[in-house]
């Protein structure tokens, strides 16, 4: 659970340090001079509520992924997935100048864990399918033009739902390449 603790600590520190969120957000105009924003954007947020909810889900999904795939593969998944999601966000949303939030990365991790669980435990597939449908429903809700904006986002910030859709697709693809870890039922 070292990775989970690191992610939790990272989210907490970046939320607490004044100015960190603005400095580490993904800015289209600065991406060439500050390429680390491709990754750091997933750990900074617009508001306290936004940070609390997104970080909580990210830490939960990181813990599940670390148990399912191990520390190393999950680290690679976070690093590579984070960069790909940011590049995808810049490509899918050409009008977007700034991006922050852990939800896409959490979605990516959650999808890989859910698919791996469905592969290993067929009896759990109905539950996984139900969770998948609910996830798709939330995606459609966010994509609806008159959708109610999540309360965690401040005024003036839109939900980058195409990045969530990309995270689902990336998660489905990544599950094929992630190693299978023997499950310890005594834990």
């Amino acid at each position: 659970m070292r990775l989970t603790a690191t992610v939790a600590l990272l989210c907490a520190v970046l939320w607490a340090v004044p100015g960190a969120s603005a400095a580490l957000a993904l800015l289209r105009t600065e991406i060439l001079s500050a390429p680390w924003q491709l990754l750091t954007a997933h750990f900074v947020h617009y508001s306290t509520v936004h940070a609390l909810i997104d970080s909580a889900v990210l830490v939960l999904c990181t813990a599940l992924a670390e148990r399912a795939f191990g520390c190393g593969p999950t680290t690679v998944l976070i690093l590579l997935g984070g960069v790909l999601l940011s590049l995808g966000a810049l490509w899918l949303l050409p009008f977007m100048q700034e991006y922050r939030g852990a939800s896409a990365l959490a979605t990516l991790l959650g999808v890989t864990v859910a698919l791996r669980t469905a592969q290993q435990a067929p009896s759990r597939r109905p539950c996984i399918a139900l969770l998948g449908l609910l996830l798709l429903a939330t995606l459609l809700r966010d994509a609806w033009p008159q959708a109610h904006r999540p309360s965690s986002l401040p005024d003036g910030v839109f939900v980058a739902w195409p990045v969530h859709a990309l995270a689902i697709a990336l998660g489905m693809a990544a599950t094929r390449f992630l190693p299978t870890r023997k499950i310890d039922i005594t834990r």
């Binding site: 909810i53 889900v57 977007m96 991006y99 980058a160």
Partner: peptide, 12 residues
């Protein structure tokens, strides 16, 4: 249109 965020709600 300039500011976007991946955001979860209590539902997620």
């Amino acid at each position: 249109a300039g500011r976007g965020g991946g955001a979860f709600d209590l539902w997620e």
